[in-house]
Design a protein around this nucleic acid. Structure first.
Lengths: 370, 370
DNA sequence: TTGTACGCGTTATCAT
DNA sequence: ATGATAACGCGTACAA
């Protein structure tokens, strides 16, 4: 232990500078900047910038000094300032309507996850109705996002504005007419066909359909698919009754079908799971129909929650995980390629969830096997 | 109609400048800036800035000229550049874990809506498990958000880091121990007490509880509330059996309770709706118990989807809409007040959904009436 | 490898 | 009411 005053070490100098700098920051009420870090580390500001850029050419000693100073100051690079110069915000706009976020909560979570692993964050825009997209477009331009994933129908003009601004766009689970635009979707028409095929293959001949209310484009595509396929197979036309997408509609729909038909149908297709549950309960407990032996009940489209609230309904589900992954991939490559990426549609087949409420023929459709 | 060459009008000049500017933008591959607008409108750049600032002092003619030029150029102010100088990004970080986004999808949608009407957008961060929050904190600092709403438990150090960075924080639906931090939550203990009170008041004496798996802090608080209240009322201790939060657990749990008790209990409390549905189906269809006359079945906590997949279970629901509104309000005022806002807890009472699976005493609890 | 100097697009301050 | 000028915090040519 020497008693003499030790000469100022590098650490000592840095520590003094750090304290001085911290005091100044508080006094002037400023944020910590790369310039402050440079001051404390005794290097230039651009050196600090390089140290935070992965793959930059920096000597180990420089890196160590800068990182020490940065840690001491709690320095984090400012993403806003960076995006100003790089023209990349690393943010992606995701537009959802209120309802679809309720019915398909896993879609957003999965989009967020997939985008995060590609270094992008989700800037969320929600609208009450799908038609309200126009209201958020202005905000989207303003926030300088690198691209957008939109789960709502877009008008021709709206798509055009994305092109004009050269903003990568992926439309999620909606059809866009008369325009070539990148999109990810699930083939609803095929969903209907598939179900009809599998049920017909198992010997069902007379079908009943509890449809949803008019206005749902996706739902009516599914119904058309089923009806077309039944006709192709030479089976009798199904009895179609309307429903309100609620539990009660399922039971009353079934009774109505039986009334019209004069007998119990071989199979009932319900527009969603809620109606399928209602139909199922009425059939089993009120009408004492042996499901699935005397009658099959299937839902056209399952929301994810149906699997945990499950009563084991046979149903078709949109492969949201794959769709989210595809959307993230598609958008990312559009962003990376700076617009040279041509519009691309990725269409997914629905996923059959074989519950215990229907008899199905074994798999023959090659698409399903894929 | 004069045949002579007309002198250049203001509109003519502006149109020419617009065309010239547009060409330059494409040639130099630049973005449209306020400077371009100024050039076309023939005014200064700061004038353009003022025209886009609500409540600034600008003459009508100036406003008109600038807006015309801006529209012609598709100009939108750049939020990143603005936030650099104003130190306001108008973005709020929302951190969710994957699971809660599935069970309470309406929470995020409502948060987004409420924040939007206050001029803030949601920058979404999702984590697989609640313990992974640490991973996204770095990103939160980087993106210069104005505040954060976090639906995950935070450690003492993590809360401290928010304070150090003076970043407004609201913890959503989680308890934070040993720290005064603003939070919005639903009183789980009271949820349990309330249910016990209302059922006891209707004459139920012997209770059974199908609990969830260990590890859910919220669920065990609810159970404790129910048990404490039953003891206070001098009723026999409930039979508690474990469950896995799935449909099957409800039925097997009920059978186990009956086995232990040697008779059918007066009321069964299930840890969530899925188990309540399972319990209900087993009771009604397999054991032929008259619900609710011979036995009441209630769920402790309902997720929103239970209402559409509803089998009309009597249950308690967390008032997510109110909670989201409160969180948005709380965070906004913390942001506006620049940190002078003291930490504040907002605790909500659970909301009783009176289905048809239980007999309940009339309302006496003053809190419920509120 | 490191430092200098400039620009990204805006708002804010201060004259006029 | 309007215009000149200085920040905001960073990335990146370019020179050394």
């Amino acid at each position: 232990m020497r008693k003499t005053r030790t000469p100022p070490t590098d650490e000592g100098v840095a520590a003094a500078r750090l304290a001085h700098c911290k005091a100044a920051l508080v006094r002037e009420n400023r944020r910590v900047t790369s310039y402050d870090v440079a001051l404390v580390a005794g290097v230039s500001q651009s050196a600090v910038s390089r140290c935070f850029k992965p793959g930059a050419s920096v000597s180990p000693s420089m890196h160590a000094r800068v990182m020490a100073a940065a840690t001491g100051l709690d320095y984090i690079p400012n993403a806003a300032a960076r995006s100003l110069i790089t023209r990349r915000s690393n943010m992606v706009a995701v537009v959802l309507c209120h309802v679809s976020s309720l019915y398909h909560p896993e879609a957003l979570a999965e989009l967020s996850r997939q985008l995060a692993r590609r270094g992008k964050r989700v800037l969320l825009f929600t609208v009450q109705h799908e038609a309200d997209v126009e209201q958020v477009l202005g905000d989207i331009w303003e926030y300088q996002v690198d691209g957008a994933i939109i789960a709502a129908p877009l008008s021709n003009e709206q798509v055009q504005e994305f092109e004009r601004r050269r903003l990568p766009l992926v439309v999620f689970n909606r059809n866009v007419r008369d325009r070539t635009v990148s999109s990810v979707l699930c083939d609803q028409y095929e969903t209907g066909r598939l179900l009809a095929t599998r049920l017909a293959g198992a010997g069902h001949r007379q079908f009943g359909i509890v449809a949803g209310p008019e206005g749902s484009a996706l739902a009516s595509e599914r119904r058309a698919g089923a009806c077309d396929r039944l006709q192709e197979l030479g089976l009798p036309a199904p009895v179609v009754v309307p429903g309100q997408f609620d539990y009660a509609s399922g039971g009353s729909g079934l009774r109505e079908i039986i009334g019209t038909l004069g007998r119990v149908p071989d199979a009932v297709l319900c527009g969603n799971d809620v109606m399928a549950l209602g139909c199922l309960d009425t059939a089993r407990h009120a009408l004492r129909i042996d499901v699935p032996r005397a009658m099959s009940v299937v839902a056209f489209d399952a929301v994810e929650p149906a699997s945990w609230l499950s009563c084991d309904v046979t149903t078709l589900r949109q492969p949201m995980h794959n769709m989210a992954l595809a959307a993230a991939d598609l958008l990312t490559s559009m962003i990376e390629s700076q617009g040279s990426h041509l519009p691309e549609k990725r269409v997914f087949a629905p996923q059959l969830v074989e519950g215990s409420t229907a008899r199905l023929a074994p798999i023959r459709d090659t698409w399903l096997a894929a």
